[in-house]
Amino acid sequence: MLSRLPQGALKNAARNVNASRSAVRARFASTTSGSSSAFQTFLNSRAALASATLATVGSVAWYAHLYGSLPFFPEVHANSPAEEGLHPPQYPWSHKGLLDSFDHASIRRGYQVYREVCAACHSLDRIAWRNLVGVSHTADEVKVMAEEVEYEDGPNDQGEMFQRPGKLSDYMPPPYPNEEAARSSNGGALPPDLSLIVKARHGGPDYIFALLTGYTEPPAGFEIRDGMNYNAYFPGNAISMARVLFDGLVEYEDGTSATTSQMAKDVVTFLNWAAEPEHDERKKAGLKAVILFSALTAISLYVKRYKWSYIKSRKIRKCCLVD
């Protein structure tokens, strides 16, 4: 099966020899030989075509990535770029690298910030008390925290609903009974559930950190309605949530000084954990997968070369192939 390849090649070569023997000089290249023609041959080659295409596509993609639009296609926007929200800077999160786990002390502080500040307005529907066990708190601590909250349960054997203290299996209590209550307490704006907010926003943790720490006075000429607040990172720049984090707002049990940016960092780390509780295991499994698959790739490359070495080093005797 494989012997066909060199066989065909040899036939071609044989034909070449025959052709040059006859008076007509047959040329199998599109150009004459010579130093300039090497360049010509390159120009006509597929490699040249492929690399020119690659260079074109690459530079257009690079331009689009850098400037956000295609070159030579001017666009008109009613908004200024600032109104779509300033891009957040990239922060050096402790869990940013491919092999970096969450900083669990930060998750613990972040939970405290969520509980003491954000929980007044934002629910955290998808996190149950039990999820904190072994992540930021011990089981005994979480049991005590859950018991402080009353949950409705039932019906009992008289068919009535009753109140009971929370258990590990209960989910985090919402601040408002329903969306309408949440809106009417917040000037019509719904404070979104924070369970998946880090995944749900472009820029992820960087955006939320920038949002929480990015409140400023509106620039001159920017009209802002009553009850709205200026934030350059929020799309539209006017957000219903006022600045909530101020230096010294909470008191950390581990003695970390509670500056605005420290609290923002901790609460965002906590929310990042809430959105990706599998994060640490995922990165560890990724490390294992990379090691195993690169070993398997190396082995299969070696085996391929080993098996093919016999086929590739055969000698084919010319005498017998020319007919």
């Binding site: 786990s101 969450f102 992540v135 560890k284 090691i291």
Partner: peptide, 26 residues
């Protein structure tokens, strides 16, 4: 393999994981 990867992981993320801070609260 699991032991090896875990020991590397724990060294790389020293002090950040729950098992590193658990003793304070227990």
């Amino acid at each position: 393999f699991d032991l090896g990867v875990t020991s590397f992981w724990d060294r790389w993320n020293q002090g950040k994981q729950w098992k590193d801070i658990r003793h304070k609260y227990v």
